[in-house]
Design a protein around this nucleic acid. Structure first.
Length: 447
RNA sequence: CGGGGCGUAGCGCAGCCUGGUAGCGCAUCUGCUUUGGGAGCAGAGGGUCGCAGGUUCGAAUCCUGCCGCCCCGACCA
C-alpha cells in the first residue's frame, strides 16, 4: 500500500481530551476518530488492527470447536421481557422505540437471543454439546466512558455461548474456552492471566476474567508470580481430551483482582512470590447454568426422554478494547510497538527522496519482494521531509521500517529499523527483504 | 449519579476578570531556499467564538437556561 493513496490523518499534537497512552496514540496515529462520548469511527489504520485481532479470535474459537453466526445489534424488547432482564438491566441499556411504538433495544449482550435461536432447533441431547459465537458491535450506555476504545459505549465484542446437557458437560465447554483464551491472547503477543472472578448467583469456580498486565490498567491485580510465566497451551492441544490438568495448573496459584481479593488466602502466598500490579480485563468467561434456559424454556430431551433445561455458559472477548489494551502493553514515548500478528502493516518503507529515479526504483523493488513473500507493506512515497516520515513511522508503530535514501543506496545499503527494540542495521535491499520476511513468517507461525 | 473543569479556525491554545475591528502556534495553499529525525523566509485562505434567550448604543467577554465533551469518585467488558 502506498501511503499517498492511503488515508492516514496523523496529528502532531495530542488532542486535549486524550489522557492515557493508547488513546493519545490511537488519535494521533489516525486509527480512530471520536464521534460522541465513547463512540468512535475506525479509520483505515485502526480498522486493520481490529481485523487482525478479530481474525485471531476467530481462528482460536474455531479451533476450540465453536461455530460462528451473526446476531443483530438491534433486538426486540420482548426477548428480554421473557428473561426478566428488560426491567432489571437499568439505564445502561439503550432503549429504542420503532415507528410502530414497539420497544426495541441496542443489544448490550446476546444471551436471550441465542437462547431463543437454539431453543426452537435443539430438542435432543444428541445435538449437544454446542458452542456458538459471534463478533458484533454492542452498546452499553456507560455513565462515564473513558480511555478511548478501552471503555467506550459502543464496542466490538466476541461472545460465545455454550449449550450442554449437564453441569459436568458444561464444565468441559468452559475448559475449552479457557484454553482457547490463553491461546488467543498469547498469539496477539501478550499474556493475559486468568483471575478468579465473581461467579454470580450460580457460585462455584467457573468464572474467570482474563487480565492483561500493564503499567496502568483499570484494576489492581494480586497474583502469584509463577502464573505469569506459564506459556499458552500449544496449537495441537486436543480440545476433546481431558483439559482438567491444564485448568488446574492455571488456576491453582493465587490470582485475583481487587474486588475479589482475599487477604487470608493472599497471606498464604509466599511473600517473595507475591506480585501486585495493574491489569486490563480483556476477556471474561462464566458458567451460568439454567439462568436463561429455565425462564425462556430452552430444553432438550435427555437419553431417558426427560425434558431438561440447557446448561449454558458465555464467554466474551473485548475485541475493540484489545486494540487499546495492546498499545498499553506495548508502546514507548513515540507510539505503539505492534507485535507482528496484530500490526496494521508488517513493514514500512521510507523513501527519503521520492521522485528520485534510484530511490523510487529501489523502494518499488523492495515492496514487490516483500509483498511476494506475504509481508504487508506501507510504502511512504510522499514528498514529506525525512524527519516527518521517521516520526510518522514510529507513531504508527509498524514492526519494521526500511529507510531507502540516495546516500545508502550509493553503498548498496538500506537501513532496517526494528520498532520493538529500536535497533537499526544497514544491509543490502535483498538481505533486508529476506530478514523481514523471515521474521514475519516466524511470528505468524501458529504454534 | 456526586464533585470539578472545559467548549474561540482542522489540532493545541490565548483573549473573558475590567464589554468596543477575533488573535497565536501547528496544520493547509502559493512562491523561493532547503532536504538522513516533525525545516527557513515571504505571502494567502480558513471562524454561526457550542446553542437559545436576556442586559447593553455595542457581548467571545456580563446574566439565565439548555446542549456537548473531559477529569476524579461510585459503576462496568
Amino acid at each position: 500500500m502506498r501511503l499517498s493513496r492511503f488515508y492516514l490523518p496523523t496529528l502532531k499534537e495530542t488532542p486535549g481530551d486524550a489522557q492515557i497512552a493508547s488513546h493519545r496514540f490511537m488519535l494521533r496515529a489516525g486509527m480512530i476518530r471520536q464521534q460522541a462520548a465513547g463512540i468512535y469511527a475506525w479509520l483505515p489504520l485502526g480498522l486493520r488492527v481490529l481485523r487482525k485481532i478479530e481474525a485471531i479470535v476467530r481462528e482460536e474459537q474455531e479451533r476450540a470447536g465453536a461455530v460462528e453466526l451473526l446476531m443483530p445489534t438491534i433486538q426486540p424488547a420482548s426477548l428480554w421481557q421473557e428473561s426478566g432482564r428488560f426491567e432489571a438491566y437499568g439505564p445502561e441499556m439503550l432503549r429504542i422505540e420503532d415507528r410502530h411504538g414497539r420497544d426495541m433495544l441496542y443489544g448490550p449482550t446476546n444471551e436471550e437471543m441465542i437462547t431463543e435461536i437454539v431453543r426452537t432447533a435443539v430438542r435432543s441431547y444428541k445435538q449437544l454439546p454446542l458452542m456458538l459465537y459471534h463478533i458484533q458491535w454492542k452498546f452499553r450506555d456507560e455513565v462515564r466512558p473513558r480511555f478511548g476504545v478501552m471503555r467506550g459505549r459502543e464496542f466490538l465484542m466476541k461472545d460465545t455461548y455454550s449449550f450442554d446437557l449437564s453441569p459436568e458437560a458444561a464444565r468441559k465447554s468452559y475448559l475449552k474456552m479457557f484454553v482457547a483464551y490463553l491461546r488467543t491472547f498469547e498469539r496477539m503477543g501478550v499474556r493475559a492471566v486468568p483471575v478468579r472472578a465473581d461467579p454470580g448467583p450460580i457460585g462455584g469456580d467457573l468464572s474467570h476474567e482474563f487480565v492483561l498486565l500493564t503499567e496502568n490498567g483499570e484494576s489492581e491485580v494480586f497474583l502469584h508470580e509463577g502464573l505469569a510465566d506459564l506459556p499458552a497451551p500449544p496449537a495441537d492441544t486436543d480440545f476433546d481430551s481431558d483439559l482438567e490438568p491444564l485448568f488446574e495448573e492455571r488456576t491453582a496459584l493465587y490470582a485475583r483482582t481487587d474486588e475479589m481479593h482475599d487477604e487470608a488466602l493472599w497471606a498464604e502466598v509466599p511473600e517473595e512470590a507475591r506480585v501486585t500490579l495493574r491489569g486490563i480485563e480483556v476477556g471474561h468467561i462464566f458458567y451460568f447454568g439454567t439462568k436463561y434456559s429455565e425462564p425462556m424454556n430452552a430444553r432438550v430431551q435427555d437419553a431417558d426422554g426427560k425434558d431438561t433445561p440447557l446448561e449454558m455458559g458465555s464467554y466474551g472477548i473485548g475485541v475493540s478494547r484489545l486494540v487499546g489494551a495492546l498499545i498499553e502493553a506495548h508502546s514507548d514515548e513515540d507510539g505503539p510497538r505492534w507485535p507482528i500478528p496484530v500490526a496494521p502493516f508488517h513493514c514500512g518503507i521510507v523513501n527519503l527522496k521520492a521522485g528520485n529515479a534510484e530511490t523510487d526504483a529501489a523502494c518499488e523493488a523492495l515492496c514487490a519482494a516483500l509483498e511476494a513473500q506475504g509481508v504487508e507493506v506501507l510504502y511512504d512515497d510522499t514528498g514529506d521531509r525525512a524527519g516527518e516520515k521517521f516520526a510518522r513511522m514510529d507513531l504508527i508503530g509498524l514492526p519494521f521500517a526500511v529507510t531507502v535514501g540516495p546516500r545508502g543506496l550509493k553503498e548498496g545499503k538500506v537501513e532496517v529499523k526494528t520498532r520493538s527494540t529500536g535497533e537499526k542495521a544497514e544491509m543490502a535491499p535483498d538481505a533486508a527483504a529476506a530478514h523481514i520476511a523471515e521474521a514475519v513468517r516466524a511470528a505468524l507461525m501458529v504454534r
